[in-house]
Design a protein around this nucleic acid. Structure first.
Lengths: 321, 321
DNA sequence: TCCGGGTGAGAAAACCTATTCCCCGAGTTT
DNA sequence: AAACTCGGGGAATAGGTTTTCTCACCCGGA
């Protein structure tokens, strides 16, 4: 029995007796033989690996993205090298070089999504896709969530449940995500001839700010009947203050969050209706773009926006009061 | 200039003129040359890769573990293949085979920590370390947090702030972690001649259960002056109920959580004193054990327990009332 | 019986890159 | 003049799989 014959048997290539083929397959099974991807890649000129670089410390946002990406890459028999930059550009550079030295066939960059970030390098020898973060270079491929659409979705849902005086408490104005969500909400309200109740309240991405913001909102617009929040954490803070001020959720004030961070959204009283950014889909899409690029069919550079969805829970149940 | 000479220059091996060496180094720098780890591994008979298999969907627990592991592995110039099993044994088996086919030098298995789990395979050709999860096979190396010590730490801290009627609301009794934490607390109280206030309240790992459990506790032991909770989520639920029942935290009732899950612990009112399992240290230790084993110096099989720490916040501030 | 065609299996090259050892030439010393 | 040293070039090597080429054998037909 020769090595070559075995290879042919396992790959169904050459011609041989069925008996021989079966004997090889049986032996391979018995010995737990699995072809070494390195050696296969050696011939094919490939490594069947990609790098995944995150600057979010594999946090809440990048994990679902990673899982989605893994899904798609798995189908291509591709393994993933994991690198966490801890938000340190030096470390990032170091990791990118290491990945290139290992001859990865592509790189996915994820991060907690904020402003466009500098790319990881120009003229890299492999394709790069940014997921849940955006490269400052327009010729790069970036996949991001639809913050504006998410804001609009929340506003339309609240209007559909009969609310008309809708406030907005969100994160720092310096975050593009916060501005976009507010924009989407404002535009959707505008289409119905409405405007946000009171000012858009920009603050922090924290529960504490949610509590404070709700107080401000109740003071400025005491007749508010719904609040759209820039994150689930903020929404929890808002919910607490509302309850303490005697406003019932959802009877008196409906509440919509953002992120669909389940431990937060489900722990809220009442459970929170919230915008889901479809992070898994972002990851899957990023991976598919990367696979296409590796296969020699790169997508044109630019930003792809993945639609958000709305997860309905108690906090916007139609009031039966 | 020959390839061999360049190699010697870069590795400081042969003898050559300083001028030649410098010329090589300059050229390597200019061309961005990085030796290919595959080729280096080819000679050394190594791959400088390890696999990281998680069954926790890279959740809250496994991420800090991974980061710690990455820290330690980075020092060994080792890259990490990432695999998420989605808690599916078939998928796990598949990934393990893939990693072995890629000739990883070792595997780290992480998971959300519960009962001992079946190992990923017997007589694997590479060392395996279980981190934040425990193999059912005693000859495997497992690194786990000190649940019992954490429970004791919480109890002693509460006693040190003058509390004597300490209740416990925790997760399902089916979880070994819950039982151990309760055991540690009970033992520590016992050493001081105390016993838990009321029954140990086993339930769910949720805020909702924290709210319910606190009601039960207040009903059974109205004079309770502290509650140790099996998780930060439970603690938040307990905190809410306490506040609604008119008990001030920490003046009337002190509160200690478990996990130090910052978004939860900091969002709590007041911010939560909580037990930190030192997950990063668990990961680092796991990686170091793996590196030792790869270097031919395997640790003896068995369970290593990493001490927990206590993070002090408002919820146990000494009452000035 | 001999030749040819067809079939099945084995042997060997190729893939790629860094390292290391061996050797050679030039220059220097004894 | 011979032996030795120093510096650098070149070739072998290691890894596992695939693929191609070659060879041996069997069977059938002439």
């Amino acid at each position: 029995m020769s090595i070559g014959t075995a290879s042919k048997a396992l790959n169904g290539r050459g011609r041989m007796r069925v008996e021989t083929r079966d004997r090889v397959l049986a032996a391979a099974e018995r010995l737990g033989f699995r072809p070494n991807p390195f050696a296969q890649g050696l011939l094919a000129g490939r490594t069947y690996t990609v790098g995944l670089v995150t600057s979010d410390s594999f946090g809440r946002f990048s994990i679902p993205v990673m899982l989605g990406a893994e899904d798609a890459l798995d189908a291509g028999q591709i393994s993933v090298f994991m690198c966490d930059t801890r938000d340190d550009p030096i470390r990032e550079r170091h990791y990118v070089e290491r990945l290139l030295a290992r001859r990865v066939e592509g790189i996915i960059v994820t991060g907690r999504r904020t402003e466009p970030r500098p790319g990881i390098g120009r003229d890299l020898p492999v394709p790069v896709v940014y997921a849940m973060t955006q490269s400052a270079d327009d010729s790069d491929v970036s996949i991001i969530p639809d913050d504006e659409g998410g804001g609009a979705l929340a506003a339309r849902h609240l209007m559909a449940t009969g609310r008309t005086r809708i406030g907005h408490v969100t994160g720092p104005q310096s975050f593009e995500a916060a501005r976009r969500r507010a924009q989407g909400m404002t535009t959707a309200l505008g289409s119905a001839g409405l405007a946000p109740a009171g000012e858009i309240l920009y603050g922090q991405w924290s529960e504490e700010w949610g509590r404070q913001g709700a107080d401000v909102l109740l003071h400025e617009s005491p007749d508010v009947d719904a609040v759209f929040c820039g994150s689930d954490q903020i929404a929890r803070g808002v919910a607490e203050t509302l309850r303490e001020r005697g406003r019932r959720v959802p009877e008196d004030v409906a509440l919509v969050g953002f992120d669909n961070w389940e431990p937060m959204a489900l722990g809220c009283r009442p459970p929170l209706t919230t915008v889901d950014m479809n992070l898994g889909e972002i990851g899957r899409l990023a991976a598919r773009h990367l696979l296409d690029a590796i296969a020699g069919d790169p997508a044109p550079g630019g930003v792809t926006i993945v639609p958000a969805g709305l997860v309905l829970r108690e906090s916007t149940r139609r009031g039966t009061s």
